[in-house]
Design a protein around this nucleic acid. Sequence first.
DNA 1: GGAGATAAGTTATCAACGATAAGTTATCAA
DNA 2: TTGATAACTTATCGTTGATAACTTATCTCC
Lengths: 220, 220
Amino acid sequence: MAALPTAVMSGRKKRGEGHTRREEILQAAKELFLEEGYDATTIRRIAERVGVSAPALYLYFHDKEAMMLALCDQTFGHLIERINDIEKTVSDPLERVRRFGDAYARFGLEHPDEYRLVFIGNNIPESVRKIGHRMPIDDPSRPGVQGALVFSRLVAMLSQLEASGVKLNYPPDTCAELCWMGIHGVVAALTMKPDFPWSNRETLIRGMQDIVIKGILHSA
Amino acid sequence: MAALPTAVMSGRKKRGEGHTRREEILQAAKELFLEEGYDATTIRRIAERVGVSAPALYLYFHDKEAMMLALCDQTFGHLIERINDIEKTVSDPLERVRRFGDAYARFGLEHPDEYRLVFIGNNIPESVRKIGHRMPIDDPSRPGVQGALVFSRLVAMLSQLEASGVKLNYPPDTCAELCWMGIHGVVAALTMKPDFPWSNRETLIRGMQDIVIKGILHSA
DNA sequence: GGAGATAAGTTATCAACGATAAGTTATCAA
DNA sequence: TTGATAACTTATCGTTGATAACTTATCTCC
């Protein structure tokens, strides 16, 4: 925040500065989503925190879900960066998969709300989606796809693992599904039932990691 | 008073017959939950299908969630019966665990909505629960606990497995958590993202089954 | 067989929600 | 100065889950 002298009392934005308001909305929405959860956060409360009226939010987002999806993409972008780092710094294909699982699990536990929306909740009633909205049907950034992108990276890693000569018990995509489902099970359980007396987190992450890797590797 | 079409001629219940109405509500709610999902099902639609006014439902249930929980307990009761059957007919402790996982996965896939509510969704905003309701705070049947009960059966099975002399890589409850998380990951993924091009269901169930069992057994 | 008592249900209504329509005001280019 | 329009606001809609307060049918008891 450099030279922004004006007070927090956010007045109307200047002509080309709409994107600034958009980011303010995202910031407020993120705070509220994390503080109180997605369902408990209302459009009106977000607007109040930003300092505008509730309908103003619809100038920048198609609906409430679009705000969450934009936040998800933003957050999952960070996970993808970590995956990129792993692929840059780790050469051993099996170790890559390990590091992926570790990064994935920790990421999910650190961002439970985003994780829930992309990989668990996904309340999309979808039944009948309203038309005639003010926003263009598709944001060019196509929010909400980063989650699937993460999964595809795991598939790629396992394909490379097989290509490197390691024998697998299943095709690479099936292996990826099984690995992902195992780690996802850990993340989902810990984030959705945080009050249950689970065993130690590290033990569970490490344990599932060992289990799925041992399980997909063809060992006699 | 105009005579309504006799299609839904459910008159008022006699004095002691309230429980009949309660079951009618449960039946209608179950149909609608399965047809359209939990969120998309409204109190008014349930009441309409039963043939009573919406507030009448609150004579028998504390709120909407209580209806779903009652249905969950009912449905999970069937799963518990199957677990009982397994324990009666299968003596080998390891085979019991296998059969448990198989029964569990199939059950989850056959009852996705109930499964979601108990093991996934659990939307409990919980922030501030209303008081001063008409229903007693606790139904004596204590709905919503059957899901946890299922898990405890798995813990028991793994304790018995260890007691039978089989060496495990982790304490029995940790093993149970890992087994459950793995199978849960399969069920959760398949039910929450049914349109994703997953591998063959049977392969995934069987695969995860093999993986977690191999993973918890201490084998040099 | 009337008189309460009360189970079973109704109508009317609430506040809150997401979302839209239509009008208003500030900003900028010409 | 003007006219287009980006950036808003106010007013309102239809639904939702849930309550309060009133009504009606059924039962028991004298």
